[in-house]
Write a protein that binds this DNA or RNA. Structure first.
Lengths: 225, 225
DNA sequence: TAGATTGTTAATCGATTAACAATC
DNA sequence: TAGATTGTTAATCGATTAACAATC
């Protein structure tokens, strides 16, 4: 029998799967066995119909009249995201940000063990952070090979970011997460994602202003005669 | 004369304005005076038509046959985002992440000066980081009032995040940026945005897997007879 | 003027949502 | 069975894009 010709998961849905995962993680910790689309959606901050539609792209994993089994749904979301296996991560740059990322519980717990740290600074090389040894930049290619690094994380200032990206690509890393606020260029077959720590502040600023403007308008409505 | 009834800027456009801003920042640093929608779009990783449409929501700030003036367009984007004034930020939690955020050039340079740091740890209180004094959590409300804090940033582990959010709301902060991987509840009139440092890794993992599957399919095509 | 590039139109595509039949 | 909740349909809404007239 042929497998059902599953439609591809829409990008908008993919971007919400991590949110559902986080909520389900929390529900699991609280010992909830099942959850309805209504409750899940409320916690995730979305419409219940949207939650059901999103989950339906993964398959029919709910039980009518009951809801979704938390454990099972978590597994299916991890499966859809390709997180049934672990993806070892290498972090370049052991400044405050690199250390914060290495500590970040969300990395390891979600399938991204930090396998190696790399830094330019000779004073840091050879020391460890949370039990992970810090290697010189020159060892990058060797580390990638020996540890089966799947993803490179750039956590250095903008100035050196492109050079490090080039080194990662050269070493055969095909997925890069860049925290430097720089515009990087990589070959087409390399997956590059950009994280800008200030971008959410800017969007917050926009909404604050919009909210303010609406309030102003209400305030400046002509008074009733 | 009435002001032109400008249509509201779509959410999708708002989310891209920071990207254009970053690219324009870089072009400005390189001394470029003008840029075409074609070049701007290429650097921002979007379609040229989309870039022009996005910018048209701000007004008609391009010059036909020439392009956009970098300085002027930067100003207009900042204006649209409500960044013509500075918004003082308070960071709660001076661990690696809090320090990384306080250092982050993108904050101050984009209109979000870090005005205060707050931490529970008595050993940290009274010391400074990059010239900013670290205050006890108990001083939060006072700091918010005295420094005109516009935005509170939560950079502590999940466990205490809700309590800190409550304290911020109580102190009158109406915009909160949360870096803890926790689901927070705030009143409706408070702007809350969630940053999950692992979410981009998860999306990267999905695309890596999808790319892999497509490659597999090609590889497993029946060989020509 | 000729060439270049914007701003806008209109067609297409994808995402959201309410509603409800299916079914636990 | 009665009540609850999913999975899916179809209508609506918003976003994307190519194309081109307007205009520098």
């Amino acid at each position: 029998m042929a497998t059902k010709p599953r439609r591809p998961i829409p990008d908008a849905t993919v971007s919400r799967l991590p949110i559902y995962q986080r909520v389900l993680d929390e529900l699991q910790t609280q010992g909830m066995a099942t959850v309805s689309s209504e409750d899940l959606a409320e916690l995730a901050g979305v419409n219940a119909a949207k939650a059901r539609k999103d989950l339906s792209f993964l398959g029919s994993y709910g039980i009518r009249g009951v809801g979704y089994e938390v454990d099972y749904l978590l597994f299916q979301i991890r499966h859809a995201l390709g997180l049934t296996q672990q993806w070892p991560v290498l972090i370049v740059g052991v400044g405050n940000l690199g250390r914060a990322l290495a500590d970040y519980a969300g990395f390891t717990s979600r399938g991204f063990p930090v396998a190696a740290l790399v830094d330019d600074d000779p004073a840091k090389v050879g020391t460890t952070h949370v039990g992970i040894e810090i290697h010189p930049l020159a060892d990058l290619a060797e580390l990638v090979r020996d540890l089966g690094i799947a993803i490179g994380v750039i956590a250095i200032p903008s100035a050196g970011a492109q050079r490090v990206a080039d080194l990662l690509v050269e070493a055969g890393v095909s997925s890069i997460l860049n925290f430097a606020p720089a515009v990087l260029t990589v070959p087409d077959d390399v997956h590059l994602r950009q994280v800008d720590l200030a971008v959410e502040l800017q969007i917050l600023s926009f909404h604050r202003q919009r909210g303010q403007r609406e309030t102003d308008q209400v305030d400046s409505d002509p008074p009733a005669p």
